[in-house]
Design a protein around this nucleic acid. Structure first.
Lengths: 195, 195
DNA sequence: GTCTATAATTAGATAGAC
DNA sequence: GTCTATCTAATTATAGAC
């Protein structure tokens, strides 16, 4: 019987996370067995527990990693002068970042209910921090007199929902490329809050 | 041993669907066992199979029923003259209908991947029919010269994503009541497509 | 670091009593 | 119409060999 043994080490950990992300996104956390993840990686189920204490932690680490990467990437973006330009930068960044990792985005939205309470709280805090970035841009725009926003929090939620919605229908090789989609959504976001 | 027997008939069927809806929405289709549904109804697992051939059909019927109800309710709405007024009617209807049944809405968005292929196709057709209702309003508005829409399909998806997003954050007894939320989102939708 | 084997539990669905 | 009992298969996680 073929028995793979020896040192593949150093890469199995990332492979486990990649396989879990792919399968969780495709079939849902509850529907994916540890055996299925192991098969995707090419090891036996027992070996997974060298890389994660349990299935729940695997899910949490994936979601946490995604949101931390999102916040870090936005922090690293150049921030132009003026709220209008910063809103455009945010909209374009959001679409670009989210279209580049559809599986992680899907997971972060769909599997919140499968998080243990403490893990859920941590994820919600990260999400809220990201929303606050957009809220700050809108607040600045109102202060500058370039935006008209009836309700700051609702406008924030509306724009994020609108932008994230791209992931539900965008397909590579479709009618519009990413740049065109970015431009059109940018325009719609600007209109929503323009004076 | 207490053994409930006799004719509770005529109400168990609806109770099964209601229990399945509640549990599927809360825990996810894959995480809910037939035993859990039975316990919620107050019967044993075997009894469920008098009301559904299997778990998959139970999910499909819930989603199909929700979307058919959505289409029928919109068809029954009064349609004012003019695309601008019809857009307002659509936005208000969408928020009102969706906030009234958060569990069914959640299910219809989250459990698409757990549908068998044929069932998925049927659900997608119903969803597309609903999207087409909004697309027709936007097209009429462009023809009337009251809307400016860079891309009809993207504007349709953007408005629906924005409106449906209300369900993710709205809580009864929160800062704004439903009427206020309707009004603000209506305003944002109008701005998005206004000339 | 990975395997095999296994414990303890639970799943969807069916059969037959009442 | 519902219950009890059961079949078959799959689940998470652990123990110990190598």
């Amino acid at each position: 019987m073929a028995r793979k043994q020896g040192s593949h080490s150093g890469i199995t950990g990332p492979k486990v996370r990649a396989a879990a992300l792919r399968l969780f996104a495709r079939d849902g956390y509850a529907a994916v067995s540890m055996r299925a993840i192991a098969a995707e990686v090419g090891v036996q189920a027992g070996a997974l527990y060298l890389y994660t204490p349990d299935k729940q932690t695997l899910l949490f680490e994936l979601m946490k990693g995604h949101l931390e990467e999102l916040l870090a990437a936005w922090a690293a973006e150049p921030k132009p002068e003026g709220a209008a330009a910063r809103l455009e930068a945010f909209a374009r960044f959001h679409i670009r970042f989210h279209l580049a990792r559809p599986e992680a985005v899907f997971l972060a939205y769909m599997e919140l209910r499968n998080l243990a309470p403490a893990n859920f709280a941590a994820i919600e805090a990260l999400r809220r921090a990201y929303e606050d970035e957009l809220a700050a841009i809108l607040r600045d725009g109102v202060a500058e007199g370039v935006f008209s926003v009836p309700d700051l929090r609702l406008a924030t939620m509306a724009i994020i929902a609108m932008l994230t919605g791209v992931n539900t229908w965008y397909r590579e090789g479709g009618r519009l490329d990413r740049a065109a989609v970015e431009a059109i959504y940018c325009d719609m976001a600007r209109r929503m809050v323009a004076c």
